[in-house]
Every structure is written in structure tokens, then in C-alpha cells.
């Protein structure tokens, strides 16, 4: 049998019966794009809300030949990303990478990499609340019926009320999308900046919500449309300045507070994208300020 890297546990931690159950749920999720498939999520050795859904999905799809990348807030080096990457290094022994292009599986929390994903890549999202209607209707029994009847008026009303009150749709992340023209879907708390990347992506996108026990998927080349109105079309967040380190524009930036006198600096949230660009010789205004 395959010797797991961490003795005493199966390859990728989960037992085979659990993997089969999750794999079956993933297949249904792919066949019904955007629909949340209930699954018997297991207790994992990390807390609920810290990526247990994504970890279970990754553990069920990963094989010895995979190359894994884990990001949180776009970065490979945030503590939770490190912790999850170490978990898989220990339990599978697979190769890991920070380079988006080299990865076959990318597990993410809150971001989609800037570099376009390619065919054969799988993007696994960690999802806290999978139900896009949950904050409008707290009851599962009700929201399930709404999905069954494709009854999404409530969401349009909410967005329209935003416009009436603020002049804008006041949702900047977790921005609801329609998948393949049928299911309203929560893209997980990625900034809406990333929504267009989901549309007809070449990669398979899988979503795991461990605490809420749901798995859903967007197959490659599937329509993912952010909700909007004719007079208030969907717009992504824009930044006034390019990345201070690599000079990239049209990317998502982190605002870094430099001192207590209000000095700020904007740098790429996708650390691999930034590093790759700088390795290629791109420089921003403060491009030499970093290691």
C-alpha cells in the first residue's frame, strides 16, 4: 500500500470511505454547476472556518503526481496558507509550489490568482457561508426552495435597495453570481474584483464549505455572471496607482500602512504574480525597497 508521509494516517489524511463520499459529491457538483451538494463533512484537525471544506476537497482529489499551491489573501506566506500547505506536505508528500503556473491544484482563501489559469488546473476555494441568500433568509428550508424554483427576486431587491440608499451596489466582496444561467452562487469572500476571472475560466473550480457541509463547482468554460442592473452595470474595484513594487496595474492591491502619519503603499495581493514580474525586471515606484 502507499506509505503515507505521516505514519498512522491515510494518504491525504482522510479515510478511503470519506474520500469516496466527497468524490461522489464533487461529481454531482460538476454535473449541476453552482448547486450546493450536501456532504457529510468530517471533523478535521484544523478548526471549522479555517478551511476545512477546501482541505477536504483537496484531500479527496489530490494524487501523488500533483503539485499543490496554497494561498490565503493571495499570498503563499500567510500563516493559514503555510499551515494548510504543511498539512498536505506531511500527509501526502506531494510537491508544493508558490508558482501559479506550476501548480496542478491551487487551494485558495479570498483570492483568485492574477495569472490566467489553464486547462487541467483545479482551483479549490475555502468557503465560510456557501449560501448566497443566507443573509437575506437565514433558513435553509426557505433558501433551498428558492433555489429549486429559481426564485432570486430577494437578491435583486437587496441590490436595488443598496443603489437607492448608497447610489451603488454596496457589496464589495462575496458578490453573488449566476452560474450557467441557472444557480445563484456565492463566490466565497473573494473581492468582486476577482469575479470576472471565474467566467469561462479554463480551470475547474471547486468550492468546499466544511462547517456548512456543502460542495459546489464551476466546470471549465462555464458562464459566471455577476448580478447587476442595466442602469447599474457590474463594475470591479479599481486602484488609482499601480503596484509600488512591480508596477503592475489592473491587479488587486493590498494597502500597507507605513507609519502613523497616514503614509500608505499599495502592493500586489498576489505575491507570486508580484515576484514573477519583478524577476522579469518590472519595477514600481518603490520597487527597490524590498528584498
Amino acid at each position: 500500500m502507499n506509505a503515507p508521509a505521516a505514519s498512522g494516517y491515510n494518504f491525504a489524511y482522510l479515510d478511503e470511505q470519506t474520500k469516496r463520499m466527497i468524490r461522489r459529491a464533487i461529481l454531482k457538483a460538476i454535473a449541476i454547476p453552482g448547486y450546493q451538494v450536501p456532504f457529510a463533512s468530517r471533523e478535521m484537525p484544523m478548526p471549522y472556518g479555517w478551511g476545512t471544506g477546501g482541505v477536504q476537497v483537496t484531500a479527496s482529489i489530490i494524487g501523488e503526481d500533483d503539485v499543490l499551491k496554497v494561498i490565503d489573501q493571495g499570498s503563499d506566506d500567510t500563516t493559514n496558507a503555510v499551515s494548510i500547505r504543511k498539512f498536505f506536505e506531511k500527509t501526502t508528500g506531494v510537491a508544493t509550489t508558490t508558482a501559479t503556473g506550476e501548480a496542478t491544484i491551487i487551494q485558495t482563501r479570498h483570492r483568485i490568482p492574477e495569472a490566467p489559469l489553464t486547462e487541467g488546473q483545479v482551483l479549490v476555494y475555502q468557503v465560510p457561508i456557501p449560501e448566497p441568500l443566507r443573509f437575506l433568509e437565514p433558513r435553509e428550508t426557505e433558501t433551498r426552495t428558492m433555489h429549486a424554483l429559481e426564485e432570486y427576486g430577494l437578491m435583486h431587491v437587496k441590490l436595488y435597495e443598496d443603489i437607492a440608499r448608497h447610489g451603488h451596489i454596496a457589496t464589495s466582496y462575496d458578490y453573488p453570481v449566476m452560474v450557467a444561467g441557472r444557480y445563484l452562487m456565492d463566490p466565497s469572500p473573494t473581492p468582486k474584483f476577482d469575479n470576472p476571472k471565474m467566467h469561462r475560466s479554463a480551470a475547474l473550480q471547486l468550492f468546499g464549505a466544511g462547517r456548512e457541509k456543502r460542495i459546489y463547482a464551476i466546470p471549465p468554460y462555464t458562464d459566471v455572471v455577476s448580478l447587476d442592473f442595466e442602469d447599474h452595470p457590474f463594475e470591479v474595484n479599481r486602484f488609482d496607482t499601480p503596484c509600488a513594487l512591480c508596477g503592475a496595474s489592473g491587479v488587486y492591491l493590498d494597502e500597507v500602512v507605513l507609519d502613523d502619519r497616514g503614509r500608505r503603499m499599495f502592493v500586489c495581493s498576489d505575491t507570486d504574480h508580484c515576484e514573477t514580474r519583478r524577476a522579469d525586471g518590472h519595477r514600481g515606484a518603490d520597487g527597490d525597497a524590498t528584498p
Binding site: M1, N2, N10, F11, E16, K19, R20, R23, I26, L27, I30, S60, I61, I62, G63, E64, L204
Partner: peptide
Amino acid sequence: VREAQSVFRSLM
């Protein structure tokens, strides 16, 4: 363990 993963991945 390995082969079930491989079959599943092909089917997925």
C-alpha cells in the same frame, strides 16, 4: 488508495 484517486480524477 492511489488507484482509486487516479480513476476518480479521470472521471472528474
